[in-house]
Amino acid sequence: MNIQITNLTKRYKTVTAVDNISLTVNSGEIYALLGPNGAGKSSLVRMLVGLTQADEGSIEISNSNGPRPQLSPEDFAYLPEDRGLYQDRTILDNLGFIAELRGLDKSLAQQRIEQWLEYFDLSERKKEPMRQLSKGNQQKVQLIATLLHDPDLVILDEPFSGLDPVNQEHVMNVLTELKQRGKTVLLSAHQMALVERLADKMLLMSHGRALAQGTLAEIRATLQPQRVYRIECNAQMAQAHWHQHDGIVDVTEIDNDVVHVIVDPYVDVEQLWPQLNQQVPMRSFSPLQLGLHEMYLNTIEQNNNKSKDIQHELA
């Protein structure tokens, strides 16, 4: 199942929740929408599953047989961010009801329910009402309800929220297995360390806009054009001397003997190191790759600073 989103925009009364977003999800990929609360991830997902309509832009769906006019309930599964099941009914009742609505054969549904409950260690509790389960266990039941009909496209809005690290790994394994079976997964999350390990491609969003998208390497190239180095030296002296040096963007003191140095992308480091070493002797240096989380935070901070500057200039 392929998804092609072009220039999608959704406005509410005073807010533009999704602002001119385009993306492509190919069959068999795990695609992640990343961003903090309010970034526009859920609004984008809701338009994709047909719960809300876009003000501008288009969503095109296709599979091996060609383009499809829209997603039909059999094609996809959706785990909403705003989720829950009937609290006064048992796990089995809830899953049975969803399976019935999905049109699953009764014996097949029963078999799949048992398998999933076994996988998530919930078999013993299948006759308990939902309200007696912890939030994490309720979340697992909800995920089972989502995947029961084994769809080609799985859309998960914040699938890791509310789960402990062990169950986050369980969910990661489920998603990896889905990918291996050729399913397409689109998920939104703010746990970037998890997504970094899982997603083939991603879109980083802030205030409804795309900050960067593509593979992790492509994102890194977009968000971290400067090179960052970890250098062992006298941190105080490095801060005092290197800050003003040509080709140095920033020097951050990590501790007394370590600094992180951001170097301008156009500078030849082979020529730079001897100059720096002359000012402050270096014991060692190594390139440093920022994680998605740090890159995202840096970018958000830079964006905020830029907008403050603009506001200041306007004032």
Binding site: V49, G50, L51, P73, F76, Y78, L79, P80, D82, R83, G84, L85, Y86, Q87, I98, L101, Q142, A145, T146
Partner: peptide, 9 residues
């Protein structure tokens, strides 16, 4: 109980 959104798909 937030059942609505999932069922509506």
């Amino acid at each position: 109980q937030r059942v609505t959104e999932q069922l509506l798909t």
